[in-house]
Amino acid sequence: MAGAAVFARPAAAQAVGLGLAQAKHCVACHRVEKKVVGPPFKAIAERFKGESTAIPHLAQRIREGSRGQWGAIGMPRQVDVTQEEAEQLAAWILSLYRPE
């Protein structure tokens, strides 16, 4: 999967992932650790940890939007995010999971 390859180096992965999230305006509704409009990225990572289909599933939700997954406020379609970018974002979000 293209998105996963970008995140082979952990330090670079975090910088690239956050930069892409900022460039695509994901941070208008999401933060890494704090709920704003949408869930924190770490909560998403925790929900989907270990799922083999997490990257394609999250990439699809990013591009097509979703309703009712995290509460009453839905996520609109992100038409300016390419499939590759959505996969990169999904891989980055999943990389944020740290078991306690």
Rank of each mutant, 00 (worst) to 15 (best):
Ala86Arg: 06
Gln22Lys: 13
Ala8Asn: 05
Pro99Cys: 06
Val16Phe: 15
Val16Met: 11
Met75Ile: 00
Glu51Ser: 11
Lys49Ala: 15
Cys26Asp: 02
Val79Leu: 13
Ala5Arg: 04
Lys49Phe: 12
Gln78Ile: 00
Ala5Phe: 11
Pro99Asp: 10
Thr82Ile: 01
Arg77Gln: 15
Thr82Gly: 07
Gln14Val: 14
Gly71Phe: 01
Ser52Tyr: 08
Gln78Ser: 14
Gly65Tyr: 12
Gly19Trp: 11
Ala90Ser: 13
Ala86Phe: 02
Glu51Gly: 06
Ile93Glu: 06
Glu33Ile: 04
Arg61Val: 09
Gln60Gly: 12
Val36Pro: 04
Gln78Ala: 12
Gly71Trp: 00
Phe7Lys: 06
Gly71Arg: 08
Lys34Asn: 01
Arg47Lys: 15
Pro99Lys: 13
Pro76Ile: 06
Thr82Asn: 08
Thr82Asp: 09
Gly50Met: 09
Gly38Trp: 02
Trp70Met: 03
Leu96Gln: 01
Pro10Tyr: 14
Phe41Asn: 00
Gly19Val: 09
Ala90His: 04
Gln60Pro: 03
Ser52Asn: 10
Gly71Thr: 03
Gln83Asn: 11
Asp80Phe: 09
Gln22Asn: 04
Val81Gly: 08
Glu84Val: 10
Glu33Asn: 15
His25Leu: 10
Ile44Leu: 12
Thr82Arg: 12
Arg61Pro: 03
Ser52Gln: 13
Gly74Tyr: 10
Ala8Gln: 02
Gly38Ala: 08
Val81Pro: 04
Ala59Phe: 04
Trp92Cys: 04
Gln69His: 14
Glu46Ile: 05
Gln22Cys: 07
Ser66Lys: 10
Ile55Pro: 01
His25Ala: 09
Leu18Pro: 02
Ala28Ile: 11
Ser66Leu: 07
Val16Leu: 15
Ile73Met: 11
Phe7Pro: 00
Met1Glu: 11
Leu89Ala: 00
Asp80His: 15
Glu85Ala: 07
Glu84Phe: 06
Lys34Ala: 14
Val37Gln: 08
Trp70Thr: 05
Glu84Cys: 07
Gln88Tyr: 00
Arg77Ser: 14
Pro39Gly: 03
Ala90Asp: 05
Leu89Tyr: 00
Leu96Tyr: 05
Ala13Gly: 15
Val27Asp: 03
Asp80Glu: 13
Gly17Gln: 00
Ala21Gln: 04
His25Gly: 07
Met75Cys: 04
Leu96Glu: 06
His57Trp: 14
Ile73His: 12
Cys29Phe: 06
Ala54Cys: 02
Leu89Arg: 00
Ala54Gly: 06
Pro40Trp: 00
Arg61Phe: 05
Gly19Pro: 06
Gly71Pro: 04
Gln60Phe: 09
Ala54Asp: 03
